[in-house]
Simulated scan of single mutants.
Amino acid sequence: MDIKQYLDSTYLKTAEQAGLSQPENLEVARTVIAEAITQNFKLVMIRPDRVAFAKEMIVAAQSEVLVGTVIDFPEGTESLAKKLEEAQQAIADGADDLDFVVNYTAFKAGEEALVKDQVLQCSQLGLKNGKTVKWIIEIAALTNKEMIALSSLIREVIIQNFEEQYWQKVFVKSSTGFYKTQDGKPNGATVEGIKLMLEASAPLPVKAAGGVRNYDEAVQMIQLGVKRIGTSSAKAIADGKIAEGGY
């Protein structure tokens, strides 16, 4: 198993969140992108304003590493128009993967029609431009019942509106890594959560994001059936070490 081809090496902190100046934060992003190129990870996942920068580095290195970015991150509560605008810019900048935060707040409030429309139209934009689309459901904010229902909603929208050849291009993804939990509860992927997502979203693929701390945990997730793993410690995982990062 080439575990590196499952790893989306991730750096999504703003300068303020990282406690750095803007130039220092850009340098961290540069280091993460360069490491992804050297290690030949599947993808490097960065903020939208770094997409063009990352693409330039990857093209210059003649690398096959993909560039992913997040849309409406991390809350997912912006309008459909705002989501589409942000995604369109990311596409123009060269993003390969678009990881949208689903409006899970609206879903929890019973606004299923709004969520379905966003999933349909944003997926449509990504797929027609040849991109991989991922929907972050933020499992730490959901009950098990809600997790199953939201994963199922995404599955139904995709299966009902797109031909089968596109189904493997739309993922259900566990977490942003930025959700604030209470009492030290995990805010990323858990075995229980991933099992529920896999069952509810099949045949769509699943990405386990956050909470995967070492090689054995990564292998366990892959054996469960996930197709991608999002982590800020991709090299540590690939090297068989314990991740020190918070995602």
Rank of each mutant, 00 (worst) to 15 (best):
V32E: 08
A34N: 14
K180R: 13
A95D: 02
S233C: 08
S152P: 01
S21V: 02
V28N: 07
A60V: 01
V119R: 03
P186Y: 07
Q39A: 15
K227C: 09
G19W: 04
A34D: 15
E244R: 10
K4F: 01
G184Q: 05
M197E: 08
V70S: 09
T105A: 15
E111I: 01
A95P: 02
A208E: 08
K83A: 06
D239P: 07
T105K: 12
E27Y: 09
V119A: 12
K55R: 15
D239F: 06
L26C: 09
S233F: 10
S201A: 15
A141L: 12
I33S: 08
A34L: 15
G230W: 02
D216N: 14
A200H: 07
Q220H: 12
K180W: 05
K4M: 07
K4Y: 04
N129T: 02
I229F: 02
K131M: 00
G188I: 05
V226P: 05
Y104S: 11
F107G: 07
T10P: 04
G19N: 02
D216L: 12
Q118T: 13
L66S: 10
Q22K: 13
Q182G: 04
L43F: 00
Q89Y: 09
T143R: 05
I46E: 08
L120N: 08
L12Q: 08
K227M: 12
E164L: 09
A36P: 06
K116S: 13
V70K: 06
L80W: 03
E64N: 15
L98C: 05
T69I: 06
R228L: 05
K134C: 00
I194N: 10
G184H: 08
A54R: 01
D239L: 11
E138Y: 04
K134T: 00
A95N: 02
R155C: 02
I229V: 06
K83W: 07
Y166P: 01
L196T: 03
A29C: 14
G126D: 00
F41P: 05
R155Q: 07
M221K: 02
M45Y: 14
S175L: 03
S174V: 06
N25D: 10
K108E: 14
V65N: 04
S123T: 10
D2C: 07
R228N: 01
Y11K: 06
F53M: 14
G130K: 00
Q124T: 12
Q22F: 12
V28T: 10
S63A: 11
E86K: 10
V65T: 11
F73Y: 15
A61M: 08
T231G: 09
P23H: 06
F53S: 10
L98W: 00
E78I: 06
K227L: 11
Q124K: 13
E85W: 11
K83G: 06
G110H: 03
Q160K: 14
L26I: 11
M197T: 04
E163V: 12
F162G: 02
T31P: 00
G130Q: 05
F178R: 13
